[in-house]
Design a protein around this nucleic acid. Structure first.
Lengths: 193, 193
DNA sequence: CTAAAATCTTGATCTAAATCAATAAATTTC
DNA sequence: GAAATTTATTGATTTAGATCAAGATTTTAG
């Protein structure tokens, strides 16, 4: 159950076998079924989730009822409403399951204890945040400087098989365009190749 | 010179007087004049900068020569091209000075040494990254779900005096709209109040 | 296996914001 | 303090992408 997490950690820092063993009890392994909610708007985000298998997604529902996909989290990704998790305020996002998933949950308290018990994990968390930051910054730069087609090509590079794994209208939402526009962009790209 | 930085750190963690003293030598204090470049596209970002005074900004120039403002960094903010800084690859951003500034620079190596010497700073850096991440995520959510006017109102809340401190066309660029559109949005808002 | 629900495509029309253009105001520079 | 440069405003026109609408295809559930 912890294979993907250990692999992920191992890319950034080195844990001794002992530290690895100390690590696991802080997490709650959990299985989720497709379409299940993991977090609902208004709830407090009690966990950060690491996806071992399957796919989750966070999104925001606006006043007109439109969904805006914030993040896709396939295996090897972390997902949460960081703001709610950190401040304990009600979440403005929803998180749900796109493909049956196995995740590792960790609470605020367990995280703090874990960082106390295994200080090198502070470093892992820092690097993690740093990397997320970079990809967010990149996404913002794309939104500012690129049109629908360029943004679509961009996401295909970042998440190569995402178009096969999520419904097109969710990908459209993630890109900040309508499903119709994405459909037209794809037709156009197919024609030119 | 370190007042603002210490204040900023103190909001997140506690440093002993001894740790504070150990901290300062890792930084290079530097003054910059308005319009000066701090980083140019293609250069490697050797420093993360903490702004003690004044204002910096990062932006990207696209193929058509249009500037896209990624971040404004007034006093109390960190700024860098994190990707270039971390990977050592050439930067795709520029950073320049909007108001005469005093900044504290820290190199990759000095940062690593600092984190070794004062381990609690790992925590500070992690929290820092986490907070940036939250505001970036929030910005993305705004870009996806809000129109020009709502986004303008949003940035006024986040950076209350930004409209007084930076030229309107830069604020427009930050919002992902043209200066003309921002001018019209502002006229509209004035009329309705 | 079939009905219902969800997803995708395509066309017609509309609209928020971009672009183009010209002038005005403010700021910087020498 | 006058000229040059930068910044902001306003109007006319265009356009990328949204919205509306209807049918086709695929997936899901009983």
């Amino acid at each position: 159950m912890f294979e993907v997490l250990f692999e992920h950690i191992d890319k950034k820092i080195t844990l001794t076998k002992e530290e690895e063993n100390k690590l696991t009890p802080f997490f709650i392994p959990k299985k989720y079924r497709k379409r299940q909610y993991v977090l609902q708007q208004g709830d407090i985000c009690k966990y950060i989730a690491f996806v071992e298998k399957g796919m989750l997604r966070s999104f925001q529902v606006d006043d007109k009822g439109n969904e805006h996909v914030i993040q896709f989290a396939p295996e090897g990704w972390w997902i949460a409403d960081n703001y709610s998790f950190l401040t304990g305020s009600p979440s403005s996002y929803d998180i749900d399951v796109l493909e049956d998933a196995e995740v590792l949950l960790i609470t605020q308290t367990a995280l703090e204890e874990m960082l106390q018990a295994i200080p090198v994990m502070e470093r892992y968390m820092r690097i993690l945040m740093q990397n997320s930051l970079i990809s967010m910054q990149n996404r913002i730069a794309c939104t500012l400087g690129s049109n629908a087609e360029e943004r679509y090509q961009g996401v295909l590079k970042a998440l190569p098989n995402i178009a096969q794994r999520v419904p097109q209208h969710m990908l459209a939402s993630f890109l900040g365009i309508t499903p119709e526009t994405l459909s037209r962009v794809r037709r156009q790209l197919l024609k030119n190749s």
